[in-house]
Design a binder for these strands. Sequence first.
DNA 1: CCTGAGTGCGTACATTTGTACGCGAAGTGT
DNA 2: ACACTTCGCGTACAAATGTACGCACTCAGG
Lengths: 193, 193
Amino acid sequence: MVKSEPGATRRRGPNDPERRARIAKAAVEVVAQRGIDGVTHRSVAAAAGVPLGSTTYHFATLDDLLEVALHEAAEKNVHALKEWESALPPDADFAAALADLVMGYINEQYRDTVVEYDLYVAALHRPALRKASAAWDDALIAFFGSRTDPLTGRLLAGLFCGLLMQAALADPRPSRDEIETLFRRAIDGPATP
Amino acid sequence: MVKSEPGATRRRGPNDPERRARIAKAAVEVVAQRGIDGVTHRSVAAAAGVPLGSTTYHFATLDDLLEVALHEAAEKNVHALKEWESALPPDADFAAALADLVMGYINEQYRDTVVEYDLYVAALHRPALRKASAAWDDALIAFFGSRTDPLTGRLLAGLFCGLLMQAALADPRPSRDEIETLFRRAIDGPATP
DNA sequence: CCTGAGTGCGTACATTTGTACGCGAAGTGT
DNA sequence: ACACTTCGCGTACAAATGTACGCACTCAGG
């Protein structure tokens, strides 16, 4: 009964907010690796390194777990987007910057991209998630609009969303120049004189 | 002993040759209603009105079932797109036509739209589906390019893909005029001085 | 030190799932 | 007409899963 094994029956403080957050993070990771349908109480518990009872305690139902995880992923993404914008020089070549952004999302941040689109599609079937996906759209539109004008902002937001998804799935991946050319065409219009 | 090759000279079932197709259609319907993770042998069997053994016979593994269903959905969609294009008058207002197309996809054909994006995201986690999603992209690019030029075609394909998804999730839905304005901006470029 | 409440988790159970197996029926060659 | 192969499906079974329940341990308050 004296299970003093480290890690077996470890009791944290009465209120351990870190654990709940760790579980949510692990859920995001599971979504990235196995998709929405790979999220189970057990898989998340394993990914978080916590026992099964811990996930069921902190998130009573599976829907709660999914919802919190996707909300967090969306917020993290929106935050990263805003940071990226504020770090961008005001005189930067916007088309080139957007191309870099897309390339980053389909390479180093591929995981985040996958989770984002999982969120989108999950929202199609779960009204509770619509708010989170709408928040991402709004952030995109505001982000792109702040550098140009509202109409162009919406255009770029839609283009970014679709292009990113197509690029993430394309084999072989499109080149950076291709992406940049498309954004330039979108911003400046046809026929460059 | 006409030991023919498996699959090549295989006769179609004497009973109900249409049954396999019916199961695939039912699987598409299940995806539309419950999402990818709602697809099980049993749910599809129920939707198709066939016994469980029938689905497991025609599609040995669940991945087969999903793959066939999504392939079929993609092909049907590409076909519909081409038909729509050929029925479009050569002198039609392209931006207005695209707006109508989007409106149709987020209203009457909402089901098909949901399945399409389910396919996309499923392809992110299942390499076997990449071909089908790439086929849709190619069809879109060819479709849009045939009315304009290759670069604009790619631009419109990306914009269409992203805009459609955002529109399907937006609450309230964007208006037809909004969509049309965006396509016009994309095709003609920024406000002409 | 004792007690009571409350927190966190280990475990058990009913349900749902994928899939293998076996049996009847339809077709095929002789 | 008869043996034999293939087809289609009903059923059974093991694994996985969501969730409820109860125990251990911690922390006030006295």
